[in-house]
């Protein structure tokens, strides 16, 4: 299914150009994630009419508005709930959910675990920038320890949420993680996620330069993505990479894959067998 496209990828065919330049801050990694998503959609050869983008609230939620496809801007934390209804009603659509770390893990945490459990054929793209950027820089479940935010003036002392482990534990069919610096790998990961029949949870490591990076003196976007590169290692390295080189021991790439039955299909079969009786 991968690589259906015959023409070169032109991003301007997939965005609403009249809304550009977009509202995101200079150097925000969400733009790179948006490019990777559109590139993956192009390479899979999915028509814009067959695509439904559902997004929540926050910086990540605003991404949906810039995509020239069927887009759905929903309430805070609930994009997965809306997407579940959409997918059940229209199983022919490729439903892609764009959500942020706070949107997905804190406010919509319950929706996430149940979407994972049902294993509905949705691709959930969680853009993790470790902060609630749009609402003023509050601490989020993925904020690293000892980082300063407006709600943690003494530094964050809460443990960090591992979203991929949560999704895997809750039963997602496909779990992956990639950072924005590795754009081609991120594109390939999103491609695999969309192609996977079942719930795909993809964590995209993004960077918030203006609100998180500046407050914590992490430098500009280039410095932030380089420090991510130092922190993350491809899962294919396995145990070969030394602990010393994995300060946070965070793996990227395809982390988990399972061919469990897909929910919408199983649901329809059940209904059909009921109708025959």
């Amino acid at each position: 299914m991968l690589d259906q496209a015959k023409t070169p990828f032109e991003i301007r065919d997939y965005i609403r150009q009249q809304l550009f330049p977009h509202f995101m801050c200079p150097g925000c990694g969400h733009g790179i994630a948006l490019r990777a998503l559109l590139w993956a959609i192009h390479d899979l050869g999915i028509a814009k009419d067959d695509l439904a983008i559902v997004s929540g609230i926050g910086c990540s939620g605003r991404i949906g508005a810039y995509i020239d496809a069927n887009t759905f801007h929903t309430t805070h934390g609930r994009p997965l709930a809306f997407a579940t209804g959409l997918k059940l009603a229209r199983p022919d659509l490729h439903v892609i959910v764009i959500t942020g770390d706070g949107d997905c893990l804190a406010i919509g945490g319950n929706h996430l675990i149940h979407a994972c459990r049902r294993n509905l054929d949705i691709t959930c793209l969680m853009l993790n920038n470790e902060i609630y950027g749009m609402t003023g820089g509050q601490v989020s479940p993925t904020t690293s320890s000892d980082r300063y935010t407006t709600t943690t003036p003494e530094g964050n002392y809460e443990p960090v949420f591992d979203a991929c482990k949560l999704a895997q534990g809750a039963g997602a069919g496909f779990v992956g993680r990639e950072m924005t610096l590795q754009t081609p790998s991120l594109k390939k990961l999103i491609q695999q996620g969309i192609a996977h029949p079942g719930f795909s949870f993809l964590e995209v490591i993004s960077d918030c330069t203006e609100i998180y990076g500046r407050k914590n003196d992490l430098g500009e976007s280039a410095e932030m993505v380089l420090s991510q590169k130092a922190d993350f290692r491809s899962a294919s390295y396995g145990m070969i990479a030394d602990e010393v080189f994995q300060p946070r021991n965070v793996k990227t790439g395809v982390l988990y894959k399972d061919d469990r039955p897909e929910y919408a299909q199983a649901y329809r079969q059940k209904i059909a067998s009921r109708a025959k009786k």
Binding site: P26, G31, I32
Partner: peptide, 10 residues
């Protein structure tokens, strides 16, 4: 082109 978050480079 890949890393430009604003799609300003082609």
């Amino acid at each position: 082109e890949w890393l430009c978050p604003d799609f300003a480079i082609t």
